[in-house]
Design a protein around this nucleic acid. Structure first.
Lengths: 189, 189
DNA sequence: AGCATTTCTTGATTTTTGTCAAGAGCAAGC
DNA sequence: GCTTGCTCTTGACAAAAATCAAGAAATGCT
């Protein structure tokens, strides 16, 4: 079973037969460090799954880059408003390292629904799960200090701090790079 | 057409016949100021639609109330993780004023899917829309100061500031009540 | 109306975080 | 191996926001 199949099974809980049908629509695509999976303003008609490598989703706000999320193995990358609602893309999605993604375009994606009758239901459940994760993220900003947010992310995923330029993590945590640097020093004791 | 029907049509874009089928599952329930629609830890098997009044969703974190959202006419109120995934509720949902809600329990909710074949698809679209709204909210915390967040909410919905205790709005915006008070004074010039 | 309670404002102060600037450390490419 | 960038750290300072405390204003209740 490939990584992709493993994750689809975990996320969507389908049987082996459906699993193979679904995953067969995804095609492997390699990205070099710096390549864009998606650029703001363009129309995105594809969904990616990170097999290896690190991918950053960010947007320019007042001439500054704001990193919304950093995806590693096992994450889907997509601009949902663009993929689902055919709007122009809000996020830039860029490979931070060389990457292997499994990619599906919206034309093929629609075919999944024809093959798997319960697909819309499974999609709903998956997006609902994503929603609750984002709810938590909002709550973190309402209730935690920069230091607490740093510690939480660090405890959740230490490796990230060796693999990703810290300025991006700082942005994703909603603090300046200097603050992250100081909190890091402080936590290291 | 009732408010509920109007909003269902706007959100889900169904025809008149389906609209009536869907809305007929919702039952009007009145809540007195202070009543709880849902309490943390309980199991929630109902979804509400705010017809009149104001409803607050909040949670205790380290003995402090954190207000996640304040809903007025036209909003759905629900603990999604509880309603969809049968987990115990994460949020308290309380009437800030006397309220009329249209309420549906999960048993009846499931019947909608039997009556409207496209329902899972429509649900998916609705939750996806909610997801993109939350994405924006996260971005606001990554890129805006307390003052900018205050101004944005005030410009978006001025009435809220006359109807809701400001301490709740402050919490929802991720700042102390004192800071909100000062920003408010400053913006009033 | 009058009292009690809650909510809001204000000032003083502290803490947290951001900004600016300089330099150190690293890595990529020639 | 040596530039050339890029990234990270550090210090000094400024700005933003939190906290604490006191009182004013509004609200609810009887």
């Amino acid at each position: 079973m490939t990584e992709l199949e493993k994750y689809i099974q975990t996320y969507f809980g389908v049987n082996n037969e459906d699993l193979i049908k679904i995953s067969s629509f995804f095609k492997p695509v390699t990205f070099k460090k710096g390549d864009y999976f998606l650029k703001t303003g363009r129309h995105s008609d594809r969904l990616g799954f990170v097999q290896t490598g690190i991918v950053r989703e960010f947007v320019y706000i007042k001439d500054k880059e704001v990193t919304k999320w950093i995806s590693t193995k096992g994450y889907f990358v997509v601009d949902l408003s663009s993929f689902v609602f055919q709007q122009s893309a809000r996020w830039n999605i860029q490979a931070l390292t060389d990457c292997e993604l499994y990619v599906i375009d919206s034309k093929d994606y629609k075919k999944i629904g024809q093959v798997i009758p319960r697909w819309a239901e499974l999609e709903k459940l998956f997006i609902a799960k994503c929603f609750t994760v984002l709810e938590d993220r909002v709550l973190q900003h309402l209730s935690m200090t920069a230091e607490e947010r740093y510690n939480q992310l660090f405890n959740f995923n230490k490796e990230l701090f060796n693999q990703v330029p810290l300025q991006y993590l700082a942005s994703m945590l909603g603090m300046s790079p200097e603050t992250l640097s100081r909190l890091r020093k402080k936590a290291a004791g």
